[in-house]
Design a protein around this nucleic acid. Structure first.
Lengths: 138, 138
DNA sequence: ACGCAATTGGTACTTTAGTATGAGTCTTTA
DNA sequence: TAAAGACTCATACTAAAGTACCAATTGCGT
């Protein structure tokens, strides 16, 4: 993407130079004006690309970005959320316990309360719901 | 690629128009020059936005599309894939059995072979792997 | 027609997951 | 400082999930 923009810019500049050269004979002294106009065009082009990247990133991320408000609303604590993320990675309770330096029973406690808060019956359903409400990344 | 060429052509046309405008406006006064510059700025801005939207769209779709070749490569059968999808919906084996009008033991058989083929130890891990290799939608 | 892979299903068993309950520690806040 | 909420952990269960084998049926291609 960056390469595309760069190449475009370079080509535009080349074109401008070409026009510049051809116009030397036709119109006498507007070189600076036209370079200015060209610069404006390039700048606005880049601005357009940049703005769109930002806004699209937002809308794209709306699907993959995390709705922290929802997490609060559901009263999910930090630890519970960490466990949820580990579940999403496909880890077992025992493995999660090892990752977080906790006992397996603690993980079970967290998982159980997660299931209640997410209104799920199983961890897989919890994942599906969590994705649906944008609490975890896809 | 075709889009790139199209956009490129548009850019060149826009450039030509803009030079044309600048040449005319040199003769006939400052007001039109400024309008011309503004138009050029807007046109290039729009082109920038357009290009970025197209390219980003592509990359987004790449992430959410299913790699059917991979499914074949992994030797995953139709039924197994159906079961995988149901797992992704967060259903239990019993629920999957009801959805597909099969017995729970059949589902277990399918799940087991899925786990082997996906090299997973648990259904949650199978989901994570399946997403990673673009076998199921996010 | 024969063989092969896919599909289905069962039994028996082990391993995870999940529930219920109780309890101790720690931090924050009224 | 006392109450509240978050975090931790344990025990004792029940319920799913997953494994290992075996076996019957079906469809498809040679």
């Amino acid at each position: 993407m960056k390469k595309t923009i760069l190449v475009f810019s370079l080509l535009i500049i080349a074109l401008i130079i070409f026009f510049q050269l051809s116009q030397y004979s036709m119109v006498s002294g507007n070189l600076r004006t036209e370079i200015g106009i060209a610069l404006i065009a390039i700048v606005f082009f880049i601005i357009g690309v940049y703005i769109n990247k930002k806004t699209l990133h937002k809308s794209v991320n709306t699907n993959s970005e995390i709705d922290y408000k929802k997490i609060e609303q559901l009263d999910i604590s930090k630890r519970e959320y960490e466990v949820l993320q580990k579940i999403a990675e496909g880890l077992s309770n025992k493995e999660i316990a090892e990752h977080l330096f906790l006992s397996e029973s603690t993980i079970k406690t967290h998982v159980s309360s997660l299931l209640v808060k997410l209104n799920a019956k199983r961890r897989t359903q919890a994942l599906q719901i969590a994705k649906e409400i944008h609490i975890i990344r896809n």
